[in-house]
């Protein structure tokens, strides 16, 4: 059992939860994730480790289905059955020179820890964080602190620059091309945004989020195709060279269980889980 140390709402439907898990926190590096299982009937889901403080790790997630809704309902002092991690390869952090980190939506959660690691390795770091609107934007203060410069975009223009993060990224590539770029967010956003750096030949990383089970390389559920080769994202990734990733396959495989996910949500909302519709 792993205890929830604090839990709060960060933005509309986006939650921040700190979990006590020393075996994870003490060994976590930028870019890694954990897998958790909330209760005995629960599934295993992966979440990025977005912060570390002593014996605790932080996850930031959007409540989109059964498990993230269950997680969102947990309060300080509640227990999570299982937490395993850190999993996956750490981000490729070394001295590049200048780096740009682009985050979309809840993908921003991955960035502060990478930004800090890059800074420690002597890089200059520009952050670009984007959300649909002002209310959905997360971690602005943390990113401001972690980066040398922070650019904000919103789709509707309610805050920062109006439009997608791809816009300012392109400008930077033209005016002062960086040595490495990270793009993390929904698959479609990663596909489009990482396309921007390709003509410039700039090394670009994306963090892939296929459906996972064990997270240790045992099942192959998380397979993705990179440079024409099948890889297991949980052990070979989750970060890969953006310009070699088959994003269409990733997006297709993310839909593997859409009918079942809907059924599961309906089951839980109808009180089939015995919670009376509380998560």
């Amino acid at each position: 059992m792993y205890q929830v140390k604090s839990a709060r709402l960060l933005a509309e439907n986006v939650y921040e939860t700190w979990i006590e898990a020393p075996h994870v926190s003490r060994n976590a590096e930028a870019g890694q994730f954990l897998v958790l299982r909330i209760d005995d009937e629960g599934e295993r889901i992966p979440l990025t480790i977005s912060g570390v403080d002593g014996d605790c790790v932080r996850v930031i997630f959007m409540a989109v289905g059964t498990t993230t809704e269950k997680l969102a309902a947990l309060k300080t002092g509640d227990a999570i059955h299982d937490v395993v991690g850190p999993l996956g390869q750490p981000s490729e952090v070394h001295h590049f020179g200048s780096c740009v980190l682009v985050g979309g939506g809840v993908g921003i959660a991955c960035l502060p820890i990478i930004a800090k690691a890059l800074k420690e390795s002597g890089n200059s770091v520009i952050g670009i964080i984007g959300a649909r609107n002002k209310d959905l934007l997360i971690l602005e203060d943390e990113m401001k602190e972690a980066c040398d410069e922070l650019i904000i975009t919103t789709d509707d223009g309610s805050y920062g620059i109006k439009g997608f993060a791809a816009g300012p990224l392109k400008e930077i590539c033209e005016s002062r091309p960086p040595d490495a770029v990270w793009v993390i967010g929904p698959a479609i956003m990663m596909k489009v945004t990482s396309g921007v750096t390709k003509p410039f030949g700039i090394k670009t990383f994306v963090s892939l989020n296929p459906v996972m089970v064990d997270g240790t390389g045992m099942c192959g559920s998380c397979r993705v195709v990179v440079n024409g080769e099948t890889k297991f994202a949980c052990v070979d990734g989750p970060e890969f060279d953006a310009h070699q990733v088959d994003f269409d396959l990733l997006m297709s495989r993310q839909r593997f269980y859409h009918p079942e996910e809907k059924e599961s949500r309906e089951h839980h909302h109808s009180g089939g889980c015995g919670c009376g519709g509380h998560h």
Binding site: E41, G42, E43, R44, T66, T67, V213, Y257, E260, E261, E263, S264, H267, H268, G272, C273
Partner: peptide, 12 residues
């Protein structure tokens, strides 16, 4: 993960 007892168990 007991997916045979889905949706009582959450794994599909």
């Amino acid at each position: 993960m007991h997916a045979n007892a889905f949706p009582q168990y959450d794994t599909p």
